[in-house]
Design a protein around this nucleic acid. Sequence first.
DNA 1: ACATTATTGAAAATCATTTTCAATAATAAA
DNA 2: TTTATTATTGAAAATGATTTTCAATAATGT
Lengths: 147, 147
Amino acid sequence: ANMKQEFEILNQFIKRRGLRYTSQREKVLDIFLSKEGHISLEELYKLVREKYPDIGYTTVYRTMKLLCECGLCQDLDLGDDVSRYEHKYAHQHHDHLICIKCNKVIEVVKQQIEKLQDDLAKKHGFLPVKHKLQIFGVCKKCLNKGK
Amino acid sequence: ANMKQEFEILNQFIKRRGLRYTSQREKVLDIFLSKEGHISLEELYKLVREKYPDIGYTTVYRTMKLLCECGLCQDLDLGDDVSRYEHKYAHQHHDHLICIKCNKVIEVVKQQIEKLQDDLAKKHGFLPVKHKLQIFGVCKKCLNKGK
DNA sequence: ACATTATTGAAAATCATTTTCAATAATAAA
DNA sequence: TTTATTATTGAAAATGATTTTCAATAATGT
């Protein structure tokens, strides 16, 4: 029954801000949730179109902005020049290992690093809000190819 | 006498690649070196123009690309949409604390984090090449303002 | 000095992202 | 329920950083 907790979160957020809960927003969220991983706006828009051809690019763009604001979505930067999105609700924070040869991305979690980062921020009087760690390198597969 | 080691590095790199050492490239490097910190292409171009009005934007752009390739320069991403550059030669690797209110950037070094990152990469079979860590938060000054 | 070819710089192209605006639709008020 | 208000939508245009084009120029090897 909690299968669609995310819709409720969006709804709450929208109400709190005096915005309006529209079918387009619901549909975009639906498609976004159906696809795990790191998705670009362009990719997401294509998926949306397949199921809901009447929804425009701009609406997808604006909805994703909203989803980021309400905590359902996290935008990320994989080093190329397009912004990507990933699920945030009920997903653990993680960092990204990015292969500079094949662009494969691996998500990694290291609690110890998280803590050190918080310490570092506090030491400088910062109140940490979020962080992004990208480790660029060459993945196992590409290393073997190069032999 | 090693005051201008960087010019030699650029020269070497250019020779090795069969490129040509031009006065424009030397001048752009000169201006870049004269300014510590995180500088955008636009800002750098303005500085270049002040001293060398005949150098075009495109040349600055292309030279910075070259400087990044030869290891004199590191491009960085401070969360906005402009790419910035910082010195890399004879500069320790560091991470960035970025204030989301006033955009102030503090450079921080934490050897322990560096090591954990390398371990993490290796554990997943990655050969780490470089990494970028941005910690977004609110700086001391902005925290006090908000009271 | 000559030939070759990399470089330069102005202008144009690219391209993801963001804004505009008139029509539409969601919510609140009557 | 009906009406009024105003947020939302989507197509098209604008934006703006980055990148490419191309003819003229300049650096390097012969």
